[in-house]
Design a protein around this nucleic acid. Structure first.
Length: 422
RNA sequence: GGAGAGAUGGCCGAGUGGUCGAAGGCGCACGCCUGGAGAGCGUGUAGGGUGCAAGCCCUCGCGAGUUCGAAUCUCGCUCUCUCCGCCA
């Protein structure tokens, strides 16, 4: 959410930001509703002030004077009530509009849509095979690492079981990522994966993303698509002290995504699935643009270090304005080389939001001078698995169908160095 | 799932229809005092909206209602605690 004052004072900038993000929103209408709200608010407040002073007077009156004052008061009370109802309706309309206004994207990101990203840097060389490489599905079948058919039988398409070294590898990458972050001062956390609507709205997924989230109507809860949601909402409605910032959280959670509208896309293997596990980095910091920028670089570096330690070729791209989320200012993705795609596939996503989420979450802090401000929030993937198993299996495969375990994962695999057919 | 108790400011806690955004205490901050510290004394100490400002308005878990007037009365909901049942 943006500051309504900012929208009043910089309407053109906000409109331009929405255009770059390709989000259709009528800012002039919003400002008209805002202006109307203030007019009606003034009337309501004047009536309430009248009511309050009359009420104090009545308390000191007796007999006929009191009765007359009460009769007069009745009329004021009725008018106040009527106007209050009107005010409430206007405020609800305004709030609904405010939730739709996008954060203007950074100036230094490209315009355009999904395919208009810029490549920032590339690390590693795609591996050249001197044999016919298998894709992760074939590798996993031979080594008995996944069971996709039974996943579909039990839960439907885009579900799976991990087995044997497949399961172990999955836990190994997750645990490796947690340990790397913990060493950097992040607090390891598990989180609720079912959350209330407010957490989804607070982080900016709702309104708009309802069709991508699993819902539990009976309990009015939603399955999260990322630990970002419960981690950012962790301090919702709180006022933190500046001294305790930044908050660095490493959240581990299962993630659930309906993937509505992707029928027929990425149907092979475990690339696009409804449920996966992810270690997520979340930062809650001071309300300062440069601080946010610095943390985004830091989160990005943390992720790149992990992918590099795993020895996986990858590149970093900057998402174009029309492709990034409503609340995001700037987004980096890491795309990791996946031989079966003969291309790079997204494995990480790093965003900064300034105070967009914090305003929705009512997440604030008290500065050393006693001023109360909204925090800034950022997040980035540390590892998302099993998707990351695709490049690991495919890049580390050998001619005999076995797969070498990346060195950094071996301590988490009981020292195993190669996954072989049983 | 069943029965009961409760929800007030950073914390404890008073307040059962009017002058209560709220006594008192603790904590915290500042000042006085002191060689210094402590004790003691004094002052201050929620968030939000609106306005140039003075001020005005809102908030006593949340929502609705009764009333001229609600922290106080009524209804619904949420959460916490105790007991029973069930369970990893």
């Amino acid at each position: 959410m943006l500051d309504i004052k900012y929208i009043r004072e910089h309407p053109e900038e906000v409109k331009r930001g929405a255009q770059r993000k390709r989000i259709d929103i009528d800012i002039d209408h919003l400002l008209a509703v805002d202006s109307n709200r203030r007019t009606v608010l003034n009337e309501v407040e004047a009536l309430r002030a009248k009511k309050n002073s009359a009420s104090a007077r009545i308390a000191g009156l007796t007999g006929a004077d009191k009765q007359n004052a009460i009769i007069e008061m009745k009329e004021t009370a009725a008018r106040e009530k009527e106007q209050s109802v009107a005010l409430k309706e206007i405020e609800e309309e305004l709030q609904a509009l405010m939730l739709r206004v996008p954060m203007p994207p950074a100036d230094d990101i490209p315009d355009g849509g999904e395919n208009d990203y810029t490549v920032l840097r590339t690390w590693g060389e795609p591996r050249k095979f001197d044999f016919e490489p298998l894709d992760h599905v074939e590798l996993a079948e031979r080594l008995d690492l996944f069971d996709l058919a039974r996943g579909a039988k039990v839960a439907g398409s885009r579900f799976y079981y991990l087995r044997n070294e497949g399961a172990l590898l999955h836990w190994a990458v997750c645990r490796y990522a947690v340990d790397q972050l913990t060493a950097k001062g992040f607090t390891p956390m598990t989180v609720p994966v079912l959350v209330k609507r407010e957490a989804m709205v607070g982080t900016g997924y709702f309104p708009g993303g309802e069709d991508q989230a699993y819902k539990i109507p009976e309990d009015e809860l939603f399955l999260v698509g990322t630990a970002e949601v419960p981690l950012c909402a962790f301090h919702a409605d709180e006022i933190l002290e500046e001294e305790e910032l930044p908050k660095l959280y490493a959240g581990y959670s299962s993630c659930f995504r309906r993937e509505a509208g992707t029928y027929g896309k990425d149907t092979r293997g475990i690339y696009r699935i409804h449920q996966f596990d992810k270690v997520e980095q979340v930062v809650i910091c001071q309300n300062d643009v440069q601080t946010s920028i610095n943390f985004q670089e830091q989160l990005q570096q943390n992720a790149e270090e992990i992918v590099q330690a795993l020895g996986l070729p990858h590149r970093v791209i900057v998402g174009a304005a029309g492709d990034i989320g409503q609340g995001q200012v700037k987004k980096y993705d890491i795309e990791t080389w996946m031989p079966s795609r003969t291309g790079y596939g997204e494995t990480h996503s790093c965003s900064r939001f300034y105070d967009f989420q914090a305003r929705r979450l009512n997440l604030r802090y008290r500065t050393k001078d006693g001023e109360i401000k909204f925090c800034h929030t950022l997040n980035n993937t540390a590892i998302a698995s099993p998707r990351i198993l695709i490049p690991i299996l495919e890049n580390y495969q050998q001619a005999d169908g076995s797969v070498v375990v990346p060195e950094v994962l071996r301590p988490y695999m009981g020292g195993m160095d190669v996954i072989r057919k049983k």
